[in-house]
């Protein structure tokens, strides 16, 4: 006969031990995310600064935001930036991972080199790229003059400034997708490739029939992570362009920072932050939904 009370105790303990394992995370989630989110939503319906709320204004801040051309341009800039950087980082990160997914010493060195930029602070990255791109004595200007061309003012031309910030970001952030893809590639069983080789499958066929389907969850993860990260663009335009020229590189987070800290419009800034939160949540959920549907199919 099994010892029923002992089994019951074991089940109860297992249940509680599970709760204990997730409790610290839940506590931090509530304290550091849910409560600040609630405070932020409340702030977005007020007029005030860091030293106090002056009035409850309902949805006035949101109405003002959607009539503010600077904010609307910031939303557009942010979307453009995400559209440039996320696909580029995913494709380049995957390409690098495919090329460097081997055991040679050279591959290890190159992996370290490509990942190295990721550990730099945004201040260093922005400074390096600013010095490279300025038309007076920057590396790009020197190279342009060396081939007899006039230097291009990447950070002063309205059409070029946001792509320049995007290139800087791709250089800075390419390490993370590369490492995620490398980890995924190393999980694919070797025998699948051996079987494909016996069937004389081409490299392209192996890529599309074995590799990409095997890492589709990682691709989805990289896309979601990068969408969330790139929507939060701040440091690079703050340090490289100040949001200019003519508001062409001002993203939503820089708008929030300027409005809240420089202009002391905390309620207005909080409203912009809620819009950003909604955009990120929608984009990430849409991506998750699409990738889940593919999995189900």
């Amino acid at each position: 006969m099994p010892d029923v009370p002992a089994m019951r105790r074991s089940v109860t303990w297992n249940r509680w031990s599970g709760v204990l394992f997730v409790a610290p995370y839940c506590a931090f989630f509530v304290l550091m995310l849910l409560i600040p989110l609630g405070i932020g939503i409340r702030l977005s319906m007020t007029r005030g600064d860091l030293f106090g709320i002056e009035a409850f204004v309902g949805l006035d801040n949101f109405a003002r935001l959607f009539a503010d051309p600077v904010f609307l341009q910031a939303v557009w800039n942010t979307f453009c930036f995400v559209l440039i950087t996320v696909p580029a980082m995913t494709v380049i990160g995957l390409a690098l991972a495919l090329v460097l997914n081997r055991t040679s010493r050279l591959a290890a060195i190159l992996r370290a080199i490509f990942f190295a930029s990721t550990v730099l602070s945004v201040t260093v990255v922005a400074l390096i790229w600013r010095l490279m791109l300025i038309p007076e004595g920057g590396l790009a200007a020197v190279l342009a003059r060396a081939i007899g061309e006039q230097p291009v003012a990447f950070l002063s031309e309205q059409a070029l400034a946001l792509p320049a910030v995007a290139v800087t970001t791709i250089w800075w952030g390419i390490g993370l997708p590369m490492v995620l893809f490398l980890a995924a590639l190393q999980q694919i069983p070797r025998d699948l490739y051996e079987a494909a080789a016996l069937d004389r499958a081409s490299k392209t066929r192996m890529l599309f029939s074995i590799t990409l389907p095997a890492i589709r969850r990682t691709i989805a993860l990289v896309l979601v992570v990068e969408i969330i990260l790139q929507f939060q663009l701040f440091g690079q335009p703050h340090l490289m362009t100040g949001g200019g020229p003519n508001n062409s590189t001002r993203p939503i987070v820089l708008f929030v920072y300027e409005t809240g800290w420089k202009q002391w419009q905390l309620g207005y800034a909080a409203a912009a932050a809620q819009v950003l939160f909604a955009l990120i949540a929608l984009a990430a959920m849409a991506q998750y939904y699409l990738s889940s549907r593919k999995d189900a199919a």
């Binding site: 002063s156 309205q158 100040g242 949001g243 200019g244 020229p245 003519n246 420089k262 202009q263 002391w264």
Partner: peptide
């Protein structure tokens, strides 16, 4: 009040006019 952020905004718009962006 808020002279510093206003100074930044005015400069940004002045620079946009200089370059012909606006």
């Amino acid at each position: 009040r808020r002279q510093s952020p206003i100074e930044f905004i005015v400069g940004e718009e002045v620079a946009a006019a200089y370059t012909g962006a606006k």
